[in-house]
Design a protein around this nucleic acid. Sequence first.
RNA 1: GGCCUCAUCGUCUAGCCCGGUCUAGGACACUGCGUUCUCAGCGCAGGAACACCGGUUCGAAUCCGGUUGGGGCUACCA
Length: 508
Amino acid sequence: MSSTSTKPVRVRYAPSPTGYLHIGGLRTALYNVFFAKRHGGTFLLRMEDTDQARLVPGAVESLIRTFATLGIVAAEGPYVENDVLSERGAYGPYTQSQRLDVYREHAELLITKGRAYRCFCSPETLDAMRAEAQAAGRPSRYDGRCRTLSKEEQEEKMTAGSHVIRMCVPPIGTISWIDQVRGEISFSAADIDDAVLVKTDGFPTYHLANVVDDHLMEISHVFRAEEWIPSTPKHVLLYQAFGWEPPLFGHLSWLLNADKTKLSKRQGDVAVENYLQRGYLPEALLNFVALLGWNPTADREIFSMDELASLFDISKVNSAGAVVNFEKLDWFNRHYLKALSSEEFARRAAPFLVAADILVPTGTDTWTARETQKTFSLAQLAGVVGLERERISALEELPKALAFAFAPLVHQAAMLCWKGMSAADTVARLEAVRAFLAEQGDVSSATLEAATKEWIAAKGWGNGEVLWPLRVALSGQEKSPGPFEMIAAFGKEESLHRVEAALHVLQK
RNA sequence: GGCCUCAUCGUCUAGCCCGGUCUAGGACACUGCGUUCUCAGCGCAGGAACACCGGUUCGAAUCCGGUUGGGGCUACCA
């Protein structure tokens, strides 16, 4: 079998819309997108909703919106515009539940060709067959007893009850393919079951729907999770039965929990939308997920999507599973958070402060602090939120980290005193620095720090004696951003006001 | 049980296909030092891996076989 294809590149991501977008699903989609971009091909989305029991309303829209937030847009398939779900592309419909006739037609075609047959066996019969095979150490597979039913027997049974359609696997030879990520994989045909193609409810199974759709949609490469390796020989056989050329397959390894089991909801957050909601930037999430199982270089971690796409090589993707290390996601997020302009950072931060009821939006790019009624322009907000930018891993930490900046402070006298200094001495230092600050012109100037330190030295004091109480006066906290950063962010009036409040507590 | 698949620092990886340049490189995390009014950041330094056994070869992380361990499939779910 060939390991290259001359067909135009068309790849797809074909999820079952059963809820949220899983991190593993995102990676699969991403690799398909990269491959399409790299080879000038097309990426399309297809919904595999043939299991009626697992349908979740709204899942398709939610999936598409999440992709859109991440900048992933399929050229063909379902899309959402103005809250309306529609489809685009010349190979539709792209939703399997709307293609039932196509599958039925193809199943009948296979029966005509003698490559599929109707099976009337009951679930009980099948269970018994499985148990027996397992006990004997044989691969558990259907024994094919309905393959040879006469026309009369078939008609009789058809009127008597329901049936499924099975593919007919001749138990001879070997089925193999050159896997694009793993190399050659082969199976003995004797181990392959006569899989059900059409269920009693008339819906196709994955095997039939997937093969028919991939062929009809002219898919050139199928990149999917490794769970499909054992089914691939069935798919190969199906392509042969139809007389079609199969696409090239590439099976991606699992994303794993810390204990090396398949990444699951039980052991943490696996929904991409949750990370987005918690304030992980799309660019960080994308960069992080793309590098799980693959890195195009030996010494770089930060890449744009375009770089990744142009560097993508499916044969270089690791065949071993990758444990997802969320601490590294934090690192990526901190990196991208720092890379934002201060105004952009403020824009992305604002919704989190609003959601926490710290800020109330009062117009385009203006907000009011709920407790102090102080208003903020975008530039002012940028100054304040910038205070914690290098101390957080995700935007969700901002409300807690910045509470001190938007509310009146309650100072603690003991905390204000530097290393056992008396309250009286601390008052003296604070009063002096308050007076010094009051005389300064532009407190947001980068030179304020140097000027202040010079002034402290001239007084014969140590930096800590003055700067510690000043910083605690401004923040009300033991740990906080530096005093000069805060003064610049708060402005002179607010800063002096905070020092005043601290003095008041000390003099009580 | 049967079939398939995987195996480099704690974790993600580079190297493996095309054996020597690998006393195995980078990143996250961790530890120490420095900067310093605190925290963070930043800078520097450090510990840390080729699962095991055998074969091929002058030479193996790299090729071959086996063992062990992990994972998947074994549904009228995908």
